[in-house]
Design a protein around this nucleic acid. Sequence first.
DNA 1: GATGAATGAGTATTCATTCAT
DNA 2: TATGAATGAATACTCATTCAT
Lengths: 212, 212, 212, 212
Amino acid sequence: MGIQERKEREKERRRQQIIVAAKRVFSEKGFNKATMEDIAKEAELSPGTLYLYFKNKEELYASLSLRVLQYLHIRVSHVNKETQLSPDQKLRSLIDAMFDVYEFDPLIIINMFHLQSSETLKNLSDSLIEEIKVLSKTSIGAITRIFEEGIEQGIYVDVHPVALADIFWSMFSGVVLWESSKTIISEYKKDYLKSTLVTAFDLFERGIRKPA
Amino acid sequence: MGIQERKEREKERRRQQIIVAAKRVFSEKGFNKATMEDIAKEAELSPGTLYLYFKNKEELYASLSLRVLQYLHIRVSHVNKETQLSPDQKLRSLIDAMFDVYEFDPLIIINMFHLQSSETLKNLSDSLIEEIKVLSKTSIGAITRIFEEGIEQGIYVDVHPVALADIFWSMFSGVVLWESSKTIISEYKKDYLKSTLVTAFDLFERGIRKPA
Amino acid sequence: MGIQERKEREKERRRQQIIVAAKRVFSEKGFNKATMEDIAKEAELSPGTLYLYFKNKEELYASLSLRVLQYLHIRVSHVNKETQLSPDQKLRSLIDAMFDVYEFDPLIIINMFHLQSSETLKNLSDSLIEEIKVLSKTSIGAITRIFEEGIEQGIYVDVHPVALADIFWSMFSGVVLWESSKTIISEYKKDYLKSTLVTAFDLFERGIRKPA
Amino acid sequence: MGIQERKEREKERRRQQIIVAAKRVFSEKGFNKATMEDIAKEAELSPGTLYLYFKNKEELYASLSLRVLQYLHIRVSHVNKETQLSPDQKLRSLIDAMFDVYEFDPLIIINMFHLQSSETLKNLSDSLIEEIKVLSKTSIGAITRIFEEGIEQGIYVDVHPVALADIFWSMFSGVVLWESSKTIISEYKKDYLKSTLVTAFDLFERGIRKPA
DNA sequence: GATGAATGAGTATTCATTCAT
DNA sequence: TATGAATGAATACTCATTCAT
């Protein structure tokens, strides 16, 4: 391992250290109430150091969403590569992947919608925006292809596969968001979320399957 | 009309004037980038006046969500009162109501999740929090009853009706959120949202209906 | 009683009503934390009405001090007019007057030093400033004359009588201020104040009396 | 000198720089009319920096009084330690100390009464309040002991020594306050203050001394 | 690279004062 | 006279960001 490479590795380690701290702080306080100093303290670094690794607060925040997207991308691409699986088996696999995405970072999905604000996007570097767009597009693309296959094989109803993919993702994030917010506003339990997700995916499957 | 009553009316008019301005400004800039001065200017009032009608910025913001909830509540309650309708017809009616909710304020649904933060709730008056909770609960309750009926009559699959109501609402808000964010992140069109909603509700209906 | 006169009387009643309310509020909250609305509420009037009787907040505040000064003036002048009294008897009388001044408004003496700020004086009407100056001067003048007499008669030590009057007043207000502040900063009791005043006047008397 | 120590020193230097500026600005404008920006400008620092050294405006203000109290404490304690001095000599020494306190900061004594407001105390950190209380108590305690000695030795009149100490301090601050306020309200000269203090202390001494 | 002290622009909120009714 | 809704100037305080060390 060359010196260059070791440095790269060290640098990446620091980035992760910051990201982990940021995740904790943002999760607890939300974007606005969380201060860069809070995050620096949590990461046991100085505020200045944060700026060596992230252009600004918005970009640090966005990179958290990016991590989930990256994870989603990996899992979903993998499902698609298993050519020997039937569409049904792939959908099962996809749903498993979604549960893993949720386990990977249950709270950050909430925050992914922060990205929507065009005011937010203004402060992100073009390369980061590009990466987010590409990951979003390819992940949704991979999901789309699963449904496409099912439609082609006459198993799923004849609906535009892109719409199916969008609805699939919307339902997933919608349930996560809604159940998370309910835990605060009303008295529902968090454990309830997973069972709701199971039911939701169930309904979805039944909804897209062609009647025999 | 007595003087007292006229004053009440005038006061309510002012509140609406502020709410309308706030909606515009918050929609355009988001909660944080929107300043109270922006809103005051939009409402053609002075900043101080805003505070005669709303305790603080958070409460002004929350009252926007409240309006949607109130509208939702009215529409959904109404559906439930039409006892002569079959569950299927009620579901149709409910879906129509959701479209109207969306038309009523397409952007503010996004903001409803701002309420989730417990930091935000701290700054709201107890009475406002109470009202939000009650409206949320009764609206979801009314939706739940529709599904309950369908299940009792053996038309819908035997799933906990509360879960159905949650998924119904989650799917709706998930699609609205996701499509809204896509219009910025990628190049999809806004008009696409409605057709996605139609498809989503379609799938949902098919998913919950018992196979013949 | 003519209409004119009745109006005058009514007007004076209102002024007193406001002054009494202001005294209560200023005493409790201090000049800065007290708002004009607080005072208006206490007086069961509207904020606007306050401005019909007092130019501004500073002037309302100053008029409280003026009242104490007026009372002081009356009491002290009266002592001086009793020509049949010996200097010693007059000093006794003066001390009695000081106790009455303290009883008249124990807290407002604290506030009299608010007048010192030239920034404050800027906001007072010339006539009010003039009145304060005249009352201060004549009251201190009357006190001075008592000591003057004692010195002339060889009873009191040969010190400039104006200085004696200043020290007399300073000691009085110093004790009131100090004991008031102590009740908050440390754990002394308020009742202690009066006995301290008694001792202080005692010392003063002994201090100015020529040794036999 | 280690780095740690140098930093400490630098930090203390900054605190003093701010305190000196604050003293000037508060003296000139009073607590309310003085703005944090005024003080920052006077200190040639940014407003934000002030908050790195002082929790808030009230605490910055209180720390000025603390300085006088600290100086008073040092001087008064020192007097008391000189065991070879007679009570009379100690009183002389004490009076000299009071003149020095006055020279140290003639205007800030006025402000010490700002502390009295319980509203003000609310905004101070517990540790600062504690320090003020302790300094007040021990300083007054030291003064008390001087009088105690004189009473025990039969030189001074038999009055509670705590009351003597209170009156001594009240007279001092009363004269300073009154003469300061007179320089504005009427046309007296500032130089007059010192001679009044001399006379006041003189009277006090004569007052407490037992007749031969 | 890392630090953390300093910055200073930005803003929610208050409240004395006004004025149309 | 009296009102009280509306004003809008004023300001304490925060915090993302920078940069000398």
